[in-house]
Structure formats: structure tokens, C-alpha cells
Design a protein around this nucleic acid. Sequence first.
DNA 1: TTCCGGAGAT
DNA 2: ATCTCCGGAA
Length: 300
Amino acid sequence: MNGASAPDPTGVDEESVDAVITWFSAAGRDLPWRHEGVSAWAILVSEVMLQQTPVVRVLPRWQEWMERWPAPADLADAPTAEVLRCWDRLGYPRRALRLQDCARVIVREHGGRVPRGQEALRALPGIGEYTAAAITAFSHRERAVVVDTNIRRVLARSVRGRALPDRSYSAAERVVATRSLPVPRRRSVAWNQAVMELGALVCTARSPRCQQCPLADGGCAWFAAGRPAPAEDTRRRQAFEGTDRQMRGMIMALLRRDGSAAEDQLLALDAEDADRVRRGIRTLIADGLAVREGSRLRLP
DNA sequence: TTCCGGAGAT
DNA sequence: ATCTCCGGAA
């Protein structure tokens, strides 16, 4: 493929772009939200669900969600308790609330159609820089600098020769991503999709499958350097297993199952630590994920 | 047990 | 800039 030419330190070269796009046409997954004719709304929903959640877990939820609420107006009118139930165990249920808010804003301010343009998208609840770019590239099929964790990792390795990207998204990375994006519109769309998939399937964080990688033959600075180990991770240790998150998850599971729960039932979730339970209840109410009803707690 | 991840609030 | 937020696979 690239023979002996060294990777460009400032961006992916054209040969590598070709290699990755060709790899994708053979190895890319057939995911339903990539099918022809899928609506911008359906793609928006998939992107929000995929924000912190693996594809395999999103698939069944997305299918059911789109059957029930195929358009923004459908979700806007749905009972929030149903929306949270249908979110099931995708995690971070505030995303489900934001998605319903997003649907309502789209109905109110955009005539029920997903707006075009990253600025308008970025203004929607739950849509940040990544998701606005992803909708622009994958649905509207326009040129956009899409940078998710997979793309960051591929570029860190292939262009910068690092084992892993910096902890926070740096200006240097943005430059590399921007310079790597092909100029022709269709090619930019193909590249975004292909490089993201390469990061998800081959250039993975822990056990990269370099023998399957279209960039291994001269297109990857990290591989060429003998895959040096990542710098000692100075990462702050994970704050004790995220116990409050775990408690919130347990409370939400109970509310999804029964619709509401009595105080005693909730306190039994951690008999050792009533404060932890109360913290969970308080923060769920503050987030709009639960409401008090007398002495009971229920879905909104 | 450890690891993974985009948005939004602070 | 840093922290919080969930659940399941490795």
C-alpha cells in the first residue's frame, strides 16, 4: 500500500484515506441506521444512544424506539415515564430526557424536522460537538470534522505515533483531524464513516488487530515504531467504583419495573448507608428522572 | 475488578 | 479544565 513512505505528521495522506475507505467497504458492519433512506431523526436518535453505549446494546433499543416514535412529534407527545422505560438499561438516562426535550424543540422551533447545519444542531438539547458533526456527515452527507474517541485513537496512532490520544481533546488533535479530512464532500463522508469503524473494530484501545489494519503497511507511525507502550497512565484513579451512580441505577431499575417505589423499599437498596440512598433519590429528582408522590417515588 | 464513553454543569 | 453520569463486556 504505502510502501516505505513515512506518515505525514500533520494529517493522514491520500493513500491511507484510500486504504481505510477500501477496508471499510469490505469489513464495515451492516448497521440499520446506516441503511439508505433512514431519516435524520432516526440517525440523531442512534447517535445519542451510541454516545456512551456499545452498538450491540443500542441495536434492540433503537429498533423499538423507532417503531414507537418514528418522528420527533411522536416522541414529543409521549409520556416521559414511557420514554424512560423504553430507554431500559442503556445507561445515563438523562440522555433519554434530553432526547425528548430535543424532539420538543425540533417540533417547536424547526417544524418537526431535524435542522441542518452544525450550529443549529449544536443548539439542540443533548447534541454536542461530536453529535452535531456526526448528523451532518452521516445523515446530511455534508463535510464535517467528526471526532469521536475511535477517530482520536486512530489519528493518535497513525499520524502522531502515540499509543493513545491525550486525555483531553487538544488543539493539536483538532488540527490533525481537520487536516486529515478529505476535501471532496463524498470522500469526506466515506472517510469519517470508515475511520470511525476502523477504530471500533481494528484499532481498538486494548488489543488492536494490527494484522488486519489497512494502515499497518507504512500508514501508521505507531506500528512503524514497534507499537511502543502507552505513557504511564497518570489518570486519577476511578473514584471508588462510582457508588452514587450505581445507586441511581438501582433506583431507576426499580422505578422502571414497578413505576413507583415506597421509601422502605428504596432504603432497602443499601441497608448499610441510608444517606447514599437519599443522595440517589435527591439527585434523580433534581435531574427530572423521578418525582415524589406522597411518601413514594415514581417516574415523571 | 477494570475499562470504556459524549454532554453539560461548574 | 474537571467532574459527574450508567451498564455490561473483557
